[in-house]
């Protein structure tokens, strides 16, 4: 593993730890889908996105829309780590008067779109991509979707529309963690064969392990080739990734850990950090 990938993995782990902290501190929020998307956010914010934390509204910046807005804890953590605002602010998450609302808003430096009502962020990303075409700008538009989110009609309206308008400047990433709020996606409303659906709708589709940062980066590189079609990276992930008792369940979709669970979660994430660093945790 090269140093850069190792660094991105450590960043992802830091995003996870901060997200759990924030959700525990607020006693509300969405751990499952925050943890599943941490590696994707790390790859985006620490390698891929052309952004400037000193100038969050820079016109040439790549856009990013968190269409699955409930993963706000991981998103805010990534933005703070990237330097858009002080890490201290994360303590105010979901509290009265905070800049860091339960779901992302454009008042937060680095946030390009207010989200939280599922599906809308995907449409919004099309508008940003269309605008880039009108202005002949070369920025790319990244958008992160949930798999449950793909139940919504608006997602498929946007999918049709993006292909029709040849929006090859969109790189969508689908956090395919197999669970939504009430249970397993395939039990509630089957999505499979999901990649065939997006292909049939006119998209380039890439399949990656969403916890393998190298694979994520490679897929993004391929998507950047721009062949006239919009790009969908289906990232196979584990809901709750990194905290054993939150993994592969919908139980922690929208539930904060209690004290004991919180301490266990942080301990497990600390152990992962040691593992990535190659250190013996008992040292």
């Amino acid at each position: 593993m090269n140093i850069e990938i190792r660094d991105l993995m450590l960043r992802a782990n830091e995003i996870r730890r901060l997200a759990i902290d924030m959700i525990y501190n607020a006693q509300s929020g969405h751990p499952g889908g925050s943890l599943s998307s941490a590696d994707i956010l790390s790859a985006l914010y620490f390698k891929v996105l052309r952004v400037d934390p000193k100038n969050p509204l820079w016109e040439e910046r790549d856009r990013f829309v968190l269409s699955k807005g409930h993963a706000s804890a991981a998103y805010y953590a990534a933005l703070a780590l990237r330097g858009f605002f002080p890490l201290e602010d994360l303590k105010t998450f979901r509290k009265i008067g905070s800049m860091l609302q339960g779901h992302p808003t454009i008042h937060v430096p680095g946030v390009d779109m207010t989200t939280g009502s599922l599906g809308q962020g995907f449409s919004n990303s099309l508008g940003m991509a269309l605008s880039a075409k009108i202005d002949k700008k070369d920025y790319l538009v990244y958008v992160l979707l949930g798999d449950g989110e793909c139940n919504e009609g608006i997602v498929w309206e946007a999918a049709l529309s993006a292909a029709h308008n040849n929006l090859d400047n969109i790189i969508a990433i689908l956090d395919r963690n197999m669970y939504q709020l009430d249970g397993a996606t395939e039990k509630i409303l089957s999505l499979e064969p999901l990649q065939d659906k997006f292909r049939a709708f006119g998209w380039n589709v890439f399949n990656v392990d969403g916890h393998n940062i190298e694979e994520i980066l490679n897929a993004i590189d391929m998507a950047k080739r721009r062949n006239g079609k919009p790009n969908m990276i289906i990232a196979r992930t584990i809901k709750g990734k990194g905290v054993s008792f939150m993994e592969n369940t919908h139980e922690f979709h929208g539930k904060a850990p209690n004290k004991e669970q919180y301490e266990r979660a942080i301990k497990e994430l600390d152990e992962i950090e040691h593992k990535i660093k190659g250190a013996d945790p008992n040292e």
């Binding site: 599922l118 599906g119 449950g148 989110e149 139940n151 919504e152 939504q180 709020l181 009430d182 249970g183 509630i188 409303l189 929208g254």
Partner: peptide, 24 residues
Amino acid sequence: DLSSSTHTIMFQRAYPDRFFNMGI
């Protein structure tokens, strides 16, 4: 996809054949 929040899940448990979780 909010049956655990709205509590319609109670009906699902009692009458699964007349409950439809439509997804989001």
